[in-house]
């Protein structure tokens, strides 16, 4: 049976683009897919240069590719993953896709007309917009997932697990490069009274508000995390004890001076803050540093709240060693 009649209807109905050019890049054939997507008729563009008919083509790059097909008589490929499209064509999912143009997988195949021995190139254009859109959704979801995995759901600062991991890494780095590092732990004063008076929504509101206010006072490299309940921690890389005391005092004052408006009521809150500096020569575990900052925080509470205290024994022992 002769099958040659098949090629015409198949080419016409194929849901992929077929473009044939000669060895001087002149258009010999376009199928319906290309005619319709590019709004052009074969009769109008036949014998014209591919690069004039599609002026947006990456000419130098594509010529090099097409040349390889002719010279080596082997196929060349282009994937949407590296180059979203070669031919700037609209796609059929304008609503569901964020991209304006059809993502494409293209294959360039050598063709030989046996009767004339003339070389041609067949360019197959496959619509890969679906894959492109799925990939975009996937990347976005992965980024969100990763963020959710390190964030505290309520306050959007780092969660305890991730914050402690970062603290360990920063301590390791500080020890290796002999850089200073300090830790701040702070606690919202009388949080229980606040919850009793304004309800848990009021308490949550205060935690969110103070997290965002404190976040705005820190450098990008500082790490603010929720340690538990109303207790938070800040890792300050490249910061000595005095520098950390300054930061802590700035935070204390900013919160004390910042009335928060919740349900038409003004809430005023204060913080008690403990500061500890890493001594890189004593290979402190991160637990030790947290314990020292926690002791300083306890002193701040005991001395009347709304104040900053620094963990002191190291300073004392250093003074003793000097005398």
């Amino acid at each position: 049976m002769d099958h040659s009649w098949l090629s015409h209807p198949i080419l016409a109905r194929l849901n992929s683009g077929v473009i044939v050019i000669d060895d001087e890049y002149r258009i010999v054939f376009l199928n319906h897919f290309i005619e319709r997507h590019a709004s052009m008729a074969l009769a109008e563009v036949a014998q014209q240069s591919l690069f004039e008919v599609f002026p947006d083509l990456p000419e130098a790059w594509l010529k090099r590719k097409l040349m390889s097909v002719l010279d080596l008589q082997s196929p060349a490929f282009s994937s949407w993953e590296q180059r979203q499209y070669i031919f700037k064509l609209p796609h059929l999912r304008p609503i569901t896709s964020s991209s304006q143009y059809m993502a494409q997988n293209c294959t360039m195949l050598p063709l030989l007309d046996e009767s004339t021995q003339q070389n041609f190139i067949c360019i197959l254009v496959e619509d890969a917009t679906d894959a492109f859109v799925y990939q975009q959704h996937l990347s976005k979801t992965l980024i969100e997932l990763e963020k959710a995995n390190r964030q505290d759901g309520l306050t959007k600062v780092l969660n305890r697990r991730y914050w402690e991991e970062q603290l360990k890494q920063e301590i390791h780095r500080a020890q290796r490069y002999q850089h200073p590092l300090s830790l701040i732990l702070f606690d919202l004063d009388k949080f229980k009274d606040l919850n009793d008076k304004y309800g848990h929504l009021g308490g949550d509101f205060v935690l969110i508000e103070l997290s965002s206010l404190i976040g705005s006072l820190l450098r990008d490299s500082d790490l603010l995390g929720r340690y538990g309940g109303e207790e938070f921690g800040i890792v300050l890389p490249d910061t000595n004890g005095q520098g950390a005391m300054d930061v802590a005092e700035r935070i204390r004052k900013a919160i004390a001076d910042h009335p928060m408006l919740f349900n038409q009521q003004t809430i005023r809150v204060t913080l008690s803050i403990g500061v500890a500096e890493l001594d890189p020569h004593h290979h402190l575990l991160h637990d030790d540093l947290i314990r020292e900052a926690d002791m300083a925080l306890y002193n701040a509470k005991r001395n009347g709240r709304n104040r900053v205290c620094q963990f002191e024994t190291k300073a004392v022992s250093r003074k003793l060693a000097q005398s």
Binding site: P58, W61, R64, L72, A76, F77, S78, Q82, R83
Partner: peptide, 28 residues
């Protein structure tokens, strides 16, 4: 090697291009 102008193409694209050339010429 491929005669690409800087900025023509990403590193990954160049790698797939040269690989395709090596593989298909050899296997052909």
């Amino acid at each position: 090697l491929l005669g690409y102008e800087p900025g023509d193409s990403s590193e990954i694209e160049m790698l797939t291009d040269i690989s395709s050339v090596l593989t298909t010429t050899f296997l052909n």
